[in-house]
Amino acid sequence: MAGLEGTEQPRRGAATAAVQWAPAVDDELALKVLELYGDPTLGEVRLPSCPESTVAARRLTHCVVVSHWGLSAQLAEHAVLLVSELVGNAVRHTGARHFGLRMWRRRGWVRMEVRDPSRGLPCLLPVRETDTNGRGLFLVDRLSDRWGVDLLARGKTAWFEMRVADR
Rank of each mutant, 00 (worst) to 15 (best):
residue 3 G to H: 04
residue 5 E to H: 12
residue 6 G to T: 02
residue 6 G to P: 05
residue 8 E to M: 07
residue 8 E to L: 08
residue 10 P to D: 03
residue 12 R to F: 08
residue 12 R to L: 13
residue 14 A to F: 03
residue 14 A to T: 00
residue 15 A to M: 05
residue 16 T to F: 06
residue 18 A to N: 01
residue 18 A to K: 04
residue 19 V to Q: 12
residue 19 V to I: 14
residue 20 Q to K: 13
residue 24 A to T: 11
residue 24 A to H: 10
residue 25 V to Y: 06
residue 25 V to S: 15
residue 26 D to W: 14
residue 30 A to L: 02
residue 31 L to Y: 12
residue 40 P to G: 05
residue 42 L to N: 11
residue 42 L to H: 15
residue 45 V to T: 11
residue 51 P to H: 13
residue 53 S to C: 06
residue 54 T to N: 14
residue 57 A to C: 13
residue 58 R to S: 15
residue 61 T to Q: 08
residue 66 V to T: 15
residue 68 H to F: 13
residue 73 A to H: 13
residue 75 L to F: 06
residue 78 H to R: 14
residue 79 A to R: 10
residue 81 L to A: 15
residue 82 L to S: 05
residue 83 V to R: 08
residue 83 V to F: 07
residue 88 G to C: 05
residue 88 G to N: 11
residue 90 A to G: 03
residue 95 G to C: 01
residue 97 R to K: 07
residue 97 R to T: 08
residue 98 H to M: 01
residue 100 G to I: 00
residue 108 G to V: 00
residue 110 V to K: 01
residue 113 E to N: 04
residue 113 E to K: 01
residue 115 R to S: 14
residue 122 P to Y: 06
residue 127 V to Y: 05
residue 127 V to S: 10
residue 128 R to C: 10
residue 134 G to V: 02
residue 135 R to Q: 06
residue 136 G to A: 13
residue 137 L to K: 02
residue 137 L to C: 04
residue 138 F to Q: 11
residue 140 V to M: 04
residue 141 D to M: 02
residue 141 D to I: 00
residue 142 R to F: 07
residue 142 R to V: 07
residue 143 L to N: 01
residue 145 D to S: 06
residue 147 W to T: 03
residue 152 L to Q: 13
residue 153 A to Q: 14
residue 153 A to G: 12
residue 154 R to S: 09
residue 156 K to H: 10
residue 159 W to S: 08
residue 159 W to R: 10
